[in-house]
Each structure stands twice: as C-alpha cells, then as structure tokens.
Simulated assay, not measured.
Amino acid sequence: MWAQPVTLSGTHAALVPLSQEHAAGLAQASADGDLSSLWYTPVPDAAEMEAEIDRRLGLLEKGTMVPFTVMAPDGRPVGMTTYMNIDHVNQRVEIGSTWYAKSVQRSGVNTECKRMLLGHAFDTLGAIAVEFRTHFLNRQSRAAIERLGARLDGILRSHMVMPNGTLRDTAVYSITAADWPAIRAGLNWTLSRPR
C-alpha cells in the first residue's frame, strides 16, 4: 500500500504509530481541557479511548487510515492525528481526526506535526494533494488550517450528522504538490522563530 505506518520526529513533538499502549496517556490528554465536551468535533473521553484506538487501528487494517499518537518531547501522549481517506491509486490523503491536549495547543506542536505529515506525504510518498476537512463553525481549526497555507476548496452543506444530532457543514481545504514548496518554506520559517 502507498501510505504505511511510520515514526516522524521533530523538536516539539513526535508522531508514532497509534497503539493501545497509549490509551491511558491519551485519556489524560483528552481530559486536559475537557476536550470530549466539544460539540463541533469528536474527541474520545477516558471511557471511549480504547474503543477509538481500536476503530482507528481497524481502519489501518483496511488501508484507509494511518493513525498516529502525538508524543511530547518528554514521551507523554498529547493527542492523536491521522492520514485518512487514503486514496492509494490517486495518491491523495486527508490529514484529520486531529486533537491535542489543551496544554500544548498554540505551542508549536500542531505546526510541527502538520509540517512532518505534509513533508512525508509530499516529499516521501509523492502525494498529488493533501486535504483537510473541518466543521464550518470550528473557527479555531479553520484558522489553523488557513495558517498552514491550505486553500478553501468549498463547503459541503449538511455533510454529516454529528453525535449530538446536528448537521455539519464541512469546510474542505487542500494543499497540492505545486503549492508545497512555498508552504514548506513558510512552515520552516514559522518553526524557526523563537516562541
């Protein structure tokens, strides 16, 4: 298959293949900021964490997802992210199902994780395009995606039913292989600045 589990390491974080060994640490990370109470994005709480890990690992077996645990430099799990909706034939992938503990948000972790995932997708896998999707009303996520340099492709109206029964309009963004050199330079510059 085109996309496979891999470990990616940076200064602020490492991305390692998701495992049930990370369940307790990920439950603590989810509790940091009470992320499971967010209405516009699903984040598992402690009771749901093992089942969510199993769900993601099941999608890995089917070849449609490569799930990662986001690890802090001290080795603690601080979030999850994935390559998802993998199109092995057309070499397209979505980066999504991402969440981070409140204590590492706005710390450089997200920027570095996206830099590593984008770099691996374009520079190693030869991706044609990388996609991002989020709830239209998730302004924090949309702003973060736009800061990366991704362009809004459009809005999928009434795209999916959320756990609370509301309909989600999904904002779809992408970065193409042609966009990547300039975006890579911008991300490298952002990560090199003092925090």
Rank of each mutant, 00 (worst) to 15 (best):
T124P: 04
V109Q: 05
R142H: 03
T134M: 10
A127M: 13
W180G: 09
F122A: 05
R147M: 08
S174D: 14
G126C: 09
T176D: 03
I175D: 04
A143K: 15
G119I: 10
V161W: 04
V161E: 01
C113L: 08
N138L: 00
F122M: 07
T124I: 13
K114D: 02
E112M: 04
R157A: 09
T134R: 06
E131N: 09
H135C: 00
D123C: 12
T166F: 02
T166R: 12
A178Y: 08
R151I: 09
R151Y: 05
L137N: 09
A171Y: 00
A171R: 01
G154L: 06
R151E: 09
G149F: 03
A129H: 01
V161G: 00
I183W: 05
C113W: 01
R115Y: 15
T170I: 08
Q140A: 15
F136K: 08
P181F: 08
A127P: 14
M116V: 02
M116E: 03
V172G: 01
R133T: 13
F122Q: 07
A182M: 13
N110M: 07
M162Q: 10
Q140D: 10
A171D: 03
L117Y: 07
A178S: 14
L167R: 08
A177W: 07
F132P: 02
R157H: 09
L152H: 11
I128A: 12
M160P: 00
R133C: 07
V161I: 14
R142Y: 01
H135D: 14
G119P: 05
I128N: 15
A185R: 15
H120P: 04
R168A: 01
A185Y: 13
D179P: 03
N110V: 06
G165L: 10
A150W: 03
L137K: 11
G154S: 09
R184I: 09
T166G: 03
R147F: 05
R157D: 05
V130E: 00
N138H: 10
M162L: 15
H120C: 06
I128E: 10
H120Y: 14
T176E: 02
P163W: 12
H135K: 01
M116C: 03
V109W: 02
A129L: 11
L167K: 05
R139E: 11
R147T: 11
E112G: 03
G154A: 09
I145D: 00
L156M: 15
L137T: 06
S174M: 06
E112P: 04
R106D: 10
L152Y: 10
L125V: 12
L125N: 04
D179L: 14
F136M: 07
V161L: 10
L137H: 14
M162P: 00
E146T: 14
R142D: 02
P181E: 06
T124D: 15
I145V: 07
P181T: 12
F122K: 04
M116Q: 14
H159Y: 11
M116G: 01
K114N: 03
A144Y: 06
R147K: 14
L148K: 05
T134F: 04
L152T: 12
H135R: 00
L148S: 04
C113E: 07
L156T: 00
